[in-house]
């Protein structure tokens, strides 16, 4: 059964130096507050896994928490570059960042394999692209039935997956709706998991298209209202598009980012402090 604890307690219990950590949420429901708690607790040498690194990993990379990034699209959606990510790849600042690069289809299938307890996934993908040459986790496999050559990608099984959802009940069952991305697979692929939620409700009302994670499939739940800001929680908040543009200015300059980071580490600032 999932234990409902504070965010700082959950991160302290679940995230260790050197871990492989996945914070998922496809534009929607990004667990940004949890990422900042990882920064605050000073975790190091993490392998960060996420389809779209977004602002949440730009922050962790700039803070020097990451050794490696496994991803498929690293931009600031609707704005441009992730400057901390680029600075790490182009100039090894604040430390070198190894990258393992896939396509969305490949990453999604890696999570599916992980959630399914399989060693790898098969897809019709990557053919003719230079990703094959640079990413060791893309191989070819021949279908034993038809002889078709397909792509094989290994399962992702994070030490911990963190996602954000709209609601939990008192037993720690979780419900999320709207664009649910790859969160179900990412949670089920992981050895442990944390779900931050907007609120705890008496009873989860069935909703069309919702993903419900039973309490016994999750390690910890933490109540963090607004924990997805500047992304959004469908039915609770709107995407803060102005903040995505504001982040461009903060992240573009190392000193400016340093001041932002001081605020996070001292616990006084959040992304909401614009």
């Amino acid at each position: 059964m999932a234990e409902i604890v504070s965010l700082s307690e959950a991160v302290r219990q679940l995230v260790r130096d050197g871990d492989t950590v996945a914070l998922e949420g496809f534009t929607h429901l990004i667990p940004v507050a949890a990422g900042q708690e990882i920064i605050r607790q000073g975790r190091l040498d993490l392998t960060l896994v996420r389809m779209t690194p977004d602002i949440v990993y730009d922050q962790l990379i700039g803070a020097g928490c990451a050794r490696k990034l496994v991803f498929s699209w690293g931009g600031n959606p609707g704005v441009g570059s992730l400057h901390r990510f680029r600075d790490a790849v182009e100039h090894a600042w604040p430390r070198p960042l190894a990258i393992e690069e896939h396509s969305h289809a490949g990453m999604a299938n890696r999570y599916v394999a992980g959630a399914s307890g399989l060693p790898f996934a098969v897809l019709r993908g990557y053919r003719g692209t230079d990703l094959v040459e640079h990413t060791a986790t893309i191989r070819e496999i021949t279908c034993p039935f038809t002889g078709e050559v397909l792509a094989a990608v290994p399962a992702i099984n994070p030490d911990v997956t963190i996602v954000h959802a709209q609601q939990a009940d008192h037993d720690g069952n979780v419900q999320m709706w709207g664009i649910t991305g790859v969160q179900n697979e990412a949670v089920l692929a992981a050895r442990s998991s944390l779900v931050t939620v907007e609120e705890v409700v008496e009873r989860l009302e069935p909703r069309p298209g919702a993903v419900v994670l039973p309490s016994w499939s999750i390690t910890n739940v933490a109540v963090v209202p607004g924990g997805a800001h500047p992304s959004y929680a469908h039915g609770y908040s709107d995407r803060d598009n102005a903040y995505y543009r504001h982040w461009d200015a903060i992240s573009r300059d190392r000193a400016e980012f340093g001041r932002w980071l001081d605020g996070i580490r001292s616990g006084h600032a959040t992304t909401a402090g614009v």
Partner: peptide, 17 residues
């Protein structure tokens, strides 16, 4: 890289399929 761009996203399989 001189410039690190965002990467593939969904495009490789969109272009193929």
């Amino acid at each position: 890289p001189t410039v690190r761009l965002p990467g593939a996203g969904g495009a490789p399989e969109i272009a193929a399929s």
